[in-house]
Design a protein around this nucleic acid. Structure first.
Lengths: 203, 203
DNA sequence: TGGCTTTTTGACCAATTGGTAAAGCTACGA
DNA sequence: TCGTAGCTTTACCAATTGGTCAAAAAGCCA
């Protein structure tokens, strides 16, 4: 009956799907969904356009796949926020991890930013289903720390917003940061943000 | 000889150019440069496509005009930062003005963000010519305040980056903020950011 | 090697899109 | 009111783009 057995993907399938997704990440993050073309992705992947469409049902399929995969990576640092750890250490480590991601995964950051910027047309369900519960959970953890007198009284939601915005800024607005910075911005950012959130969170 | 006299625009010209730019702001900020079409802009403006092209030489012309106009509005709050004023008051007022802009001019914020996100292909010259000098000047002002012992020791550049990112976040990432917020986010943001930068800047 | 499946390609298509040309309409001063 | 400059529209391109299809090529295994 149910013979829709997944039939594990061949080595070629794995390789080519990966090639395509990596190329698509380049192109989508650089030009946005509408600005990216299948031809660009095909060239970047070193495959022909019809071949791309052999592995994905269409442009949107590639984009959605990319966003789904990204979601996991993206939320990971927040998942690691440990309710049983030392509050200040946990939060400052979270800031550091997010800044590391902005430095190491700028394409992913910009892909995400572009999607949200345009109203999250393809990611909205993911936000509600995955991000919201995690966000609420971690807000409760932070609120617990505050109630226990271990952190200054801040609104956990806006605290997290400010962590996201200040760190992702260095990836998403890189073109601007580059114009305005002399030296390596990330190193300065690490020191500055560490100081900033230490001051904000100290009781 | 030089009869390239500007020949002041007629009432119709003024009205239609304004209609077009307003419609284009809607469309460009919602879909990005490549995602926006002249047809969309024409419909939004209530004019025919060829008529749009009577007032602007092309799609890019509209976009560039929009960005140029935006630049002035965008830098205005920073221009108002007064070196002779009280440092803490001046900076907290700057934060408030930026947050007001995120609330009142979200389309402009997103247009700007989209352009930077894609590497500022059309705005890079403006950034170097207009933003950079102003940025450097105001950084020097802030550094002066710090040297005078009136503010905490912070890197002025990263301070400004953090003001930009935290405030613009509420416009650019509105789709995400909406999913994660119960009440009006801006009011909470005002209180939070006021507290945040007060703590960061206090000696 | 031979035969079957998986992968790849070249040729092609319909829709969209930025843009043009020229005719037609409208407002407004003489 | 009439002519002309300014404005608008209809009809039309050429290029791009997402996507299809059937045939060819390449793997793979007995």
């Amino acid at each position: 009956m149910q013979d829709d057995a997944p039939k594990k993907p061949s080595r070629i399938q794995q390789r080519n799907r990966h090639l395509i997704l990596d190329a698509a990440l380049d192109v989508f993050s650089a030009h946005g969904y509408r600005g990216a073309t299948l031809d660009q992705i095909a060239v970047a992947a070193g495959l022909s356009k019809p071949n791309i469409l052999y592995y994905f049902t269409g442009k949107e399929d590639i984009h959605v796949t990319l966003l789904s995969q990204l979601m996991e990576t993206w939320l990971d640092p927040l998942v690691e926020l440990d309710a049983t750890g030392d509050p200040m250490t946990e939060l400052l480590d979270y800031v550091r991890r997010k800044l590391d991601m902005a430095r190491d995964l700028p394409r992913e950051s910009r892909l995400f930013a572009g999607e949200i910027l345009q109203g999250a047309p393809r990611m909205h369900p993911h936000l509600v289903a995955d991000l919201k519960p995690l966000f609420d959970e971690k807000c409760a953890v932070i609120q617990g720390w505050i109630d226990a007198g271990k952190l200054a009284q801040v609104d956990p939601r806006h605290l997290i917003f400010s962590i996201w915005s200040t760190t992702q800024h260095y990836a998403d607005f890189d073109a601007q940061v580059q114009v305005l910075s002399d030296e390596d911005p990330i190193e300065g950012a690490r020191r500055y943000l560490d100081m900033l959130f230490r001051r904000v969170l100290s009781v």
